[in-house]
């Protein structure tokens, strides 16, 4: 696949990070959607913007895509200022907008070709169809595709100009688990091709599976930033041990050992572990006190715990 020659000069600016945002503010008459956020996305990485609906994810992304003008602050994309270089930015980015939609009476291939002709140079439509795994739907009208197939076509149209940076705004929102995992594969293949991917999601698993770096955003502010592992280590509880026990003294003994919570519904005792190395100590403690158990389950902490810890709010959870 050939890279657009006309874009060659633009692509030369490899020194700049993919995205730089400084003290960005977006105010609307009734709400401050983005409230002074700063972050940097290095090239070649998958960056996930994680937060609940209305957190300011899409507003930020649409400022970077030059669809909205910032109120204050600075933002640059591949070295270009979003206020001044709209035209250049549009040539080198690919976008899957939130709730992607395209022409319902054009086929998969015709839709890709349509968007391809908007650029000076475009990748071959059949290659893109193969990349997202829609070969058997090449000549199906968009209106006859399933939700997952529509999103795959959306990803293909976002890649049609062979962009350096791809924005995927809630790519798997509303999809069933199978379709979601299918799409994750397609997104992972982008990373292998050296693309920078800017992803927004309110699904924890999505960020954990795909992202190199995660920015957690809530109410227009970034509340944490780092790799999924870093965030879990720093803000999550390392892991938790779930104990199902018929012994009446189990709760008393275990909660003396460490922080723990008891599920009222089924009597499960969840013990927070500072590290996995304390596991043998707990087991021997239970033996010593004649605590029997029907089940021991070691749960790794997730980004959901991170979000809960950071904001005190529950986040939507992927199936």
């Amino acid at each position: 696949m050939s890279k657009g020659e006309a874009d060659g000069a633009l692509r030369a600016r490899t020194g700049d990070p993919a995205v730089v945002v400084k003290s960005l503010v977006k105010e609307y008459p009734d709400v401050v959607a983005v409230n002074g956020i700063s972050f940097t996305v290095p090239r070649g990485k998958v960056f996930a913007f994680l937060g609940p609906n209305g957190a300011g994810k899409t507003t930020t992304v649409e400022i970077l895509e030059c669809l909205r003008k910032p109120t204050k602050g600075e933002a640059s994309v591949l070295g270009y200022d979003v206020r001044k270089d709209e035209r250049r930015i549009r040539k080198v980015i690919g976008v899957l907008p939130q709730q992607f939609n395209t022409y319902e009476r054009l086929t998969v291939k015709e839709n890709i070709q349509y968007f391809g002709r908007m650029y000076d140079r475009a990748l071959d439509a059949d290659d893109l169809i193969a990349l997202v795994g829609l070969e058997d739907k090449t000549n199906s009208l968009y209106m006859n595709l399933s939700g997952g197939q529509k999103q795959k076509l959306g990803v293909a149209t976002a890649l049609v100009n062979d962009p350096e940076l791809v924005f995927l705004d809630e790519p798997t929102s509303g999809l069933d688990p199978k379709a979601r995992r299918d799409l994750w594969q397609a997104i992972e293949s982008l990373k292998k091709r050296g693309k920078t991917v800017f992803l927004t999601t309110h699904y924890m698993e999505e960020a954990e599976v795909l992202a190199d770096a995660v920015g957690v955003i809530n109410k227009g502010k970034i509340v944490a930033m780092g790799s999924p592992d870093e965030l879990i280590t720093r803000y999550g509880v390392a892991s938790r041990l779930v104990v199902k026990s018929p012994s009446t003294n189990a709760r008393q003994i275990l909660c003396k050992f460490s922080d723990c919570t008891v599920r009222e519904s089924n009597g499960d005792i969840e013990v927070s572990l500072s590290s996995k190395s304390v596991l043998p100590d707990i087991i021997s403690l239970m033996d010593k006190n004649d605590i029997t158990y029907t089940e021991l389950l070691l749960k790794r902490s997730t980004l959901e715990d991170v979000f809960l810890n950071l904001t005190g709010e529950q986040l939507g959870r992927a199936e």
Partner: peptide, 13 residues
Amino acid sequence: KNGILRKVATTPM
């Protein structure tokens, strides 16, 4: 409303 305009607006058109 259905978002096609938003998608087109991200291209050089």
